[in-house]
Every structure is written in C-alpha cells, then in structure tokens.
C-alpha cells in the first residue's frame, strides 16, 4: 500500500502572524516548520503502513523557496521520501490552485491512500483536501477520528454533529484526520540522522505541466479588499480570587438575571 501524506510547512505559529501590507497574504518569508496538524496524518500513515505488508509512506508538500525543514521533521518520524512542489509562480495561491499543484504531484506517486489534516493552522480553509480528492477522482472521508485499512478498503470513524458515523469506502481514497486521532511520535536521534539522506524530489510547475497563469496570484479569482481592526470588547473587571471569586460570579450572574 502506498500512502501519501500532505504536509504543510507554515510560519512558526509561536511567532505572531503578519499579513503582507501590500498583497494582504500571510508573510511566509521566515523559516517554515511542519504544521502540527499534519503530525497526526504522518503518524497515522506510519501506523497504517505498518499494518499492511509492503507499504510505503511518501510526503507531499507545496512551499516557497524550496523549503524542506518541515519535511525533514516528518521524514525523521519515519516516512521514506518526499515530494516538494516549489515554484515562484505559486506564491499567493488560493486553496484550489494549491490543490491543483498538489494533485499533479500526487497523481505521479499513484497512491492507494492520501492523508491530510482536517484544516491547516495558518490558512484553515478546510476545503483543500476535498478539492484534492475531486481532482484525483477519489472518494473522501473528512473529520476522521479513527482510521483503519487492510490495503483494499478504508474504514473510518467520522465525527458528526451528534456523535460519529462508521464510514467505509474502497481504496484509493483520501481521508482527513483530526488532531488527537493518534499520538504523534517524536523523531528519534537515529530518525533525524536518517532523514538527512532521504530523497526529496523537488518539482516545478513546468515539471508538473501546470500553466503558471492558472495558479498563484495570477490564477487567484478572489482578492483581499482590506484588513481592519475588529471591534474590541470593552475591558472587563479582572480580580484576584481572595476566596470571594465564587461570590463575585454569583453577583455577576444575578445582575444579568441568569439566576
């Protein structure tokens, strides 16, 4: 079974985000790291591959400037190889353009199973994986909180409003996992060393046969008009609990006539 995992490389979430003043796109000029949300997908892929003999895990990422540091982290967890789509013309891509670029790269890998996160930490549109599945002509099961497969059929516990559904579909298929679905492993020292020599295939738009005017800023058919400060909530009363915290809350609730 060949499992492809989407790994987004994003600006370090610990550093406050910033938008480019001119283009209003997220500033991605600093060093990028693996999106934590994807660590669950990588772990899931490694576990599923471990259960089906002859399986392999390949990572796929689209990122500017030939960025590979986030991919190295995921390779250190145990994936065999990675594909990076990187091309200046991709800058400013919306979710659909990103899906097109990733789909072209993934198609070449001929996967049985594609895994992505439910939503990324930085853009969080949550639409890219399903766009990807449609472009690949695959069924998709989103919001998985449990996944198993025998290499032929996929079985998923999918979150719902009311609880969860057991969903099944034949492979090849795409699944999106939620955080907490598995406990991502920490890369071992050996894993980190091994990751340095694992192959990363870097592909340009020309390699993928994608017309640069279909993607990136030029291909985007939406624009940011402006960014404004949200109405701030009026400052509240913050008090130290001197044993009277509960009484203060009761008084507040009384005043609101909630009790």
């Amino acid at each position: 079974m060949h499992v492809v995992v989407c790994v987004k490389q994003i600006p370090d979430p610990a550093v406050p985000g910033a938008l480019d003043q001119v283009t209003h796109t997220l500033d991605r000029s600093g060093k990028l790291v693996m999106d934590d949300s994807d660590s669950y997908g990588v772990e899931m892929a490694l576990q599923l591959a471990g259960n089906v003999e002859g399986s392999e895990v390949t990572l796929v990422s689209m990122a500017p400037g030939g960025e590979t540091s986030g991919l190295r982290t995921a390779l250190a967890m145990g994936a065999a190889r990675a594909i990076l789509v990187s091309d200046d013309a991709l800058s400013g891509s919306d979710a659909l353009s990103t899906a097109k670029a990733l789909a072209a790269a993934i198609r070449r890998a001929e996967p049985d199973l594609v895994i992505a996160a439910t939503e990324s930490t930085d853009g969080y549109t949550g639409t890219l994986p399903v766009q990807l599945a449609e472009l690949l002509g695959m069924p998709s099961v989103t919001f998985a909180k449990g996944v198993s497969t025998d290499g032929t059929t996929l079985e998923v516990e999918r979150q719902t409003e009311a609880g969860y559904d057991e969903v099944t579909c034949p492979l090849p298929a795409l699944v999106t996992v939620t955080a907490g679905v598995v406990e991502p492993r920490y890369p071992s020292f050996k894993g980190i060393m091994a990751a340095k020599s694992k192959p990363i295939d870097v592909l340009s738009l020309a390699d993928l046969g994608i017309d640069p005017s279909d993607v990136g800023v030029r291909g985007a058919r939406e624009e940011v008009v402006d960014v404004a400060d949200a109405e701030a909530r009026a400052g509240g009363e913050i008090v130290m609990d001197e044993g009277d915290g509960a009484a203060r809350i009761v008084a507040f609730l009384e005043q609101l006539k909630v009790i």
């Binding site: 549109t125 399903v130 766009q131």
Partner: peptide, 23 residues
C-alpha cells in the same frame, strides 16, 4: 460551514473550477 457543507463546497469548487471563500 458544517461537516457535510464543507465537503460539498470542496467538491463543487473543483468540479466548477471556481474558488471558495471560507470562514
């Protein structure tokens, strides 16, 4: 913006080749 709604939006976007504005 629900589980199924997001699925329909993503599929429709790729089928029509039209982008989506989300959130």
């Amino acid at each position: 913006a629900s589980y199924d709604g997001r699925d329909v939006a993503g599929r429709l976007s790729a089928m029509l080749d039209r982008p989506v504005l989300t959130n």
